[in-house]
Design a protein around this nucleic acid. Structure first.
Length: 659
RNA sequence: UGCGGGGUGGAGCAGUGGUAGCUCGUUGGGCUCAUAACCCAAAGGUCGCCAGUUCGAGUCUGGCCCCCGCUACCA
């Protein structure tokens, strides 16, 4: 019989900040539950993970805090590791991608790809910020969205209207997001990976795994393949990252090196060869946004080495857990983060609630109300109280010893339910990875037994005391085992109460011997009061607002002076074809006339605008918007619903400077 | 724009052709061993809308309306 090796990975937490609840339930927690379950079932299983320590956001975050990226990552990595420890995530290795071992592995794989002809170079045009002295990835360029006119649209996509940009240069008045100055265009030679040549192999991979991967994973991958795979730019003009050996000054794109972390971390614990062992089952956990990297890019890279790496057996992706009507956001700090969480409640509270909320099928919302309900009702009332009453019976009726029963049909039914729960667990958790359902099965066992106790009334029916106590104790023991993958601290507590130390899933079927003495007990959980939950709801709402204020950046006066603002008189207004909101406006600014493209159509009619005297920025770099060259920018007060042009309150000559 | 997911009693969800279910909440009752807990019962749904297939549809088909997500660096 083949003994499979189970290699569990979860998407690497990104080291720019502390993960939030969404990050936890998306990857590290389900992977932990799963690997704990496999280990409990006696499988050979390793869970590898680590901090993704490279890339721009970390560099940006470090700069913001005036430290070196290495220092920043060092700090965050330690914090994250400590928090994960508190959450009882049972990694076999939790490393990081900014160590030597990882860099070597990445370079080794890159060299293999190069040997096999999958690497080439090409010139591309990038944006470079002279002030920050660095090139800007799309997301770090901001500007006004040419479609909806929203300010602060990111270079890859406008958050307001969803418009996608091929290049951040499509933005009106684009600027560097960190220093607000105007980036310059620059040519740069980049390294490309011939992903297109591996398209067929990836398609074959998908076909092979069609039965095994979950539906969402398949869909996302199919979608990607439908559009056809394009070669991938794998280099970045950054300092912080793994330097490309034959391309000094450039580092690997983080998504190239990050998944390689799974391999390099495995190496650290001496199981690198699992990656080329056909008996290895690679099981990967991640949020849905990470799927392409695990079903397409990473497998393509591994295939490109021609070294027989294993394919992912299962790629479990999860939908998003949202907060306050939107997504949790690392960059905007919306929602509850792991450090907040661990300060407030015990690890098992979070583990339980998050698993229950596991967004397997659709996005879900984290609410404090629901959190409180889950803890108070499921954990406290059902599990906690069940264990407590069972142990009380044992103490009161039988001097803390397991009684010798004379089992009736009803008792046997409950005992049978213990064994059935194991089967259900294997199915819902082991096979189907339905996290929320699987923990429900376990809680149900306690629920069912609670009902049985109430029906049998052992406090009244003295002749039934033995059987009911015996049976409830067996259930309690089973719970201490079944709960372990989900809420290990609680499971351990119950084991201590009972004075046992089972380590395998099958042991749930072995009964506690009559005469066995229990060690003692205390309440397992404490309820969350309504006031408390309400307070936190308020608190984490406020947090948002603070953040917005923080984002307001001060600029030196000199920078302001660089802007040339003048009064101008609108001469002519034309609609721009195919545009929802744009006008082409001709403005008299004194010595000359300028053309401006402005998003005003939804707010002003052509007639209203004509002959208006307005404030105009006249020294912006011209930008082409919807095919029209815009050489000036009309200033206006902008709200979500209203837009009001700025104009002088006395009559001024067109072209008068504004200071 | 394209793609995906979803719309089931007050809330959160399960349910892929055969009497509409679970947890919470509400109301009433039981019990009093236990952490004001536990147990029972009731009320509450024309399963988003329309048309079709079928002996029979929440479940299949077509159209429509809403919500949400993804669209290649937020799990």
């Amino acid at each position: 019989m083949i003994t499979f090796k189970y290699l569990i990975t979860s998407a690497l937490p990104y080291g720019s900040n502390i993960p939030h609840l969404g990050n936890i339930i998306g990857s590290v927690l389900p992977a932990d539950v799963y690997s704990r379950f496999l280990k409990l079932d006696g499988k050979e299983c390793k869970y590898v993970c680590g901090t993704d320590s490279n890339g721009t956001p970390i560099e940006v975050e470090a700069t913001k805090h005036k430290v070196e990226p290495s220092e920043w990552v060092e700090k965050k990595h330690k914090e994250i590791k400590k928090l994960f420890d508190e959450l009882n995530l049972d990694f076999d290795v939790y490393s990081r991608t900014d160590n030597k071992n990882h860099a070597e592995k990445t370079i080794e794989i890159y060299n293999k790809l190069k040997e096999n002809g999958y690497i080439y170079r090409k010139d591309i045009e990038i944006l470079y910020c002279p002030k920050c002295e660095k090139s800007l990835p799309d997301r770090y360029v901001k500007g006004k969205c040419p479609k909806c006119g929203a300010e602060g649209a990111k270079g890859d996509q406008c958050d307001e209207c969803g418009k996608l940009f091929d290049s951040p240069k499509e933005l009106i008045d684009y600027y560097c997001s960190s220093c607000k100055s105007r980036p310059k265009k620059k040519k740069s030679e980049h390294v490309f990976f011939k992903l297109s040549e591996l398209e067929e192999e990836i398609k074959e991979l998908l076909e092979r795994k069609r039965e095994k991967w979950p539906k969402t994973t398949i869909k996302i991958t199919e979608n990607l393949l439908k559009e056809g795979l394009r070669d991938k730019d794998i280099s970045r003009n950054l300092k912080w990252g793994i330097e490309i050996p034959d391309k000094p000054g450039q580092v690997f794109y983080v998504w190239i090196d990050a998944p390689i972390g799974y391999i390099s971390f495995s190496k650290e614990i001496g199981i690198e060869e699992w990656w080329k062992d056909e008996d290895t089952k690679l099981i990967q956990f991640m949020g849905k946004d990470n799927v392409p990297f695990h079903t397409v890019y990473f497998p393509a890279i591994l295939k490109g080495t021609r070294e027989g790496y294993v394919e992912p057996e299962r790629v479990k992706s999860c939908e998003f857990l949202n907060y306050g009507g939107g997504q949790f956001s690392k960059s905007n700090k919306v929602g509850v983060f792991l450090d907040d969480a661990m300060e407030l409640y015990p690890s098992d509270y979070w583990r339980y609630a998050l698993i229950k909320m596991y967004p397997g099928k659709r996005d879900r919302e984290f609410t404090w109300k629901e959190f409180r309900k889950m803890i108070n009702h499921d954990l406290n009332d059902v599990v906690g109280n069940f264990v407590h009453r069972t142990l009380t019976f044992t103490e009161k009726f039988f001097e803390s010893k397991v009684p010798e029963p004379d089992l009736m049909e009803r008792d046997k039914e409950i005992l049978k339910a213990i064994d059935e729960t194991e089967k259900k667990l294997r199915d819902t958790l082991g096979q189907k990875m339905e996290f929320n359902k699987s923990i429900d099965m376990v809680i149900d066992l306690a629920r069912k037994t609670n009902k049985y106790i109430t029906d049998e009334e052992p406090w009244k029916n003295k002749e039934r005391q033995k059987e009911v106590t015996y049976t409830s104790l067996q259930v309690t023991k089973a719970l201490s085992i079944y709960l372990e993958p989900f809420i290990p601290e609680t499971a351990d507590k119950i084991k201590k109460f009972l004075g046992i130390n089972p380590e395998k899933l099958e042991q749930a079927k072995e009964r506690l011997e009559p005469g066995h003495k229990i060690k003692g007990y205390e309440p397992l959980f404490e309820k969350i009061r309504k006031k408390e939950a309400d307070k936190y709801e308020e608190k984490f709402k406020e947090k948002n607002n603070e953040k917005e204020v923080e984002e307001m950046k001060k600029i030196p006066f000199d920078q302001f002076k660089e802007l040339e603002i003048k009064t101008g008189k609108i001469k002519n207004v034309e609609k721009i074809e195919k545009s929802d909101n744009l006008y082409k406006i001709t403005i008299d600014i004194g010595k000359e006339e300028r053309t401006a493209v402005a998003g005003l159509k939804n707010y002003y009619s052509q007639e209203e605008l004509k002959d208006k005297e307005v404030a105009v920025v006249t020294n912006l770099e011209p930008a082409k918007i919807m095919g029209v060259k815009s050489e000036a920018m009309v200033l206006a007060a902008v709200d979500n619903e209203k837009v009001s042009l700025l104009k002088t309150d006395k009559k001024m000559k067109p072209g008068t400077p504004v200071e």
